[in-house]
């Protein structure tokens, strides 16, 4: 379980998160939704230990994020891999840090995603880079998988492959996935729980199916309504 307890984070004069309390349940897929600047990426960076809260605390199964890095697979929105590496070199580099790296799954996923591991990362397309990042995260049997805008700027076919990969490899009840995105419609059917963030505050959170049934709307419409009310 991941807990945010009264977490605030500022970047200069900009308040990215404002006394946020969130609980991400274990073994579920949570959608972290909101417009640009809502605090979604900051939330993921706080879980990964790339940022530290100014106030409050973030706990992963009661532990500090800095002590839990080995349990986290993180896919940032930006390209963070070494362009001079081939996919095989990047995989070898990452595998040296994690005991949960699954070599068989790597080969399987490589074929499923249509990648050749001799491809140089600096010379492949944006879609292939997105798939490579996903490959390096999902090859691991990590406890937490954090995806920051995994579909951003990606063509429709690649999006489909990414979503299929997530569905295929999700270990329900054992692994927790948090997907941060403002493209809700793409992953609406994938998420169990949702957290709507806006300007650093939680506008709405709960079980996705329950919210849809209660309000008789899709998650996109629920988000629009929640933000309209907040404004």
């Amino acid at each position: 379980m991941i807990e945010f307890k009264g977490v605030s984070k500022n970047f200069g004069r900009t308040r990215a998160l404002d006394a946020v309390d969130i609980t991400f349940a274990t073994g579920k897929i949570t959608g972290l939704f909101g417009p640009n600047g809502a605090g979604k990426s900051t939330s993921l960076k706080l879980i990964t230990g790339l940022n530290r809260p100014d106030r409050g605390e973030v706990l992963l199964d009661g532990r500090n994020p800095m002590d839990s890095k080995v349990d986290i697979a993180y896919l940032p929105e930006i390209d963070h891999l070494y362009p001079w590496m081939t996919i095989r070199q990047a995989a070898s580099f990452v595998s040296d840090f994690y005991g949960d790296w699954d070599g068989e799954r790597y080969k399987d996923l490589l074929g499923f995603l249509g990648l050749d591991d001799e491809m140089k990362i600096g010379k492949i397309s944006k879609g292939q880079r997105a798939k490579t990042k996903l490959l390096l995260c999902t090859t691991r049997r990590s406890r937490y998988l954090l995806l920051d805008e995994p579909l951003s700027g990606i063509d429709i076919l690649t999006r489909e492959q990414i979503i299929q990969t997530l569905i295929r490899d999700f270990r329900e009840g054992e692994q927790s996935i948090i997907i941060s995105t403002h493209e809700i419609s793409e992953i609406e059917g994938l998420v169990d729980e949702v957290v709507f963030l806006d300007r650093g505050r939680v506008r709405l959170q709960g079980d996705a199916e329950q919210l849809r049934e209660e309000r008789g709307m899709s998650l996109v419409e629920i988000m629009k309504e929640a933000f309209r009310d907040a404004n």
Binding site: T48, L50, K69, I72, P76, I78, D79, H80, F97
Partner: peptide, 13 residues
């Protein structure tokens, strides 16, 4: 400058 710090800092190192 190349954003690889995101990878380095997320590693358990």
């Amino acid at each position: 400058s190349s954003n690889t710090i995101y990878l380095i800092m997320s590693l358990p190192a």
